[in-house]
Amino acid sequence: MMPKTRLARAGRILFPLAALTALVSCSFVAQGAESRPKGTAFVFGVSEYKAHKLTFPDDDAVSLSALLNRRGWISKAVVNSNATKAAIKNAIEVAAANLDSSSSFLFYFSGHGEGGKDKEACIIPYDGIKGKADLATENWISASELKAWTAKLPTKNVIVILDTCYSGGFIETGASLDLAPQNYGKLDDGIAPSFPLESLGYFNELLARSLASKDQEGPLHLSAAGSDELSFEADTWSHGVFTYFLLEAAEDGDEDGDGKVSALEAFAYAKRRLADAWNKKRADWLYEGRYMDYLPRASGGFRDLVLYE
């Protein structure tokens, strides 16, 4: 079945030192054995827009919120007509007033998004579409607005996950650079350059990020798609494709086997699964004149955050 688009959804060798490390690790990591305080998550999903309806974003939000509640978070799902711009802003403000510097905060949105090469990326809450031809753009939430709201949070342990079209436009900070082109695909702008030689072509940007220490502790962003890509939902999985694999990552995404799945581990898992299970079949499929393969993006530095405990 043709998937529905979210229209604009948007030491080796180290024997002596390894032993020493293990010894020292025991003493330090013992701190890590304490259970950390539960994080706070607000999970939004909008399917039932007044027009341009989607099918699964509300299910995405409900499923993710339930999973987060089981895996180390206190999460609240807000869906459909309750997921307005004011509600989203209010949730972040409430969190800003109640969290402290050691807290973790997660914001998730699944629904429509807008953006593209020359437009600032936006997510579209319930009240962002008032009719088929009545796009209430004043109720859209731009990348800069969301950044300003999350900047007021008293903690740096913030994860922002967006399953919308063009959501890569929200990714801008962090010491690291995701080198996949913003419109991924052999028939689009290409694939990620190989490491390390081709990635040296991004030397200037990498150096600038390395020197811009101020922004390196901003939110860890995970986005379903690049800033110039559509993202999709699929009847096969009854979810947004990216969200489905993020959910799956709770069970299968612990790559280093430490019993926890970090945001970047979940991202890496979802990216790999999406590339295998979705992109391989659709690299040359067109939807509304665009190739249907796409790739999740992430930003961040050397620090990563626990997503599933």
């Binding site: 690291s176 390390p196 390395s210 991202f267 930003s299 530095g301």
Partner: peptide
């Protein structure tokens, strides 16, 4: 140093 995070494809440069 030019380094790559495992699996994520995130590249970083640090002095």
């Amino acid at each position: 140093s030019l380094v790559l995070g495992p699996q994520s494809g995130l590249v970083s440069l640090f002095p």
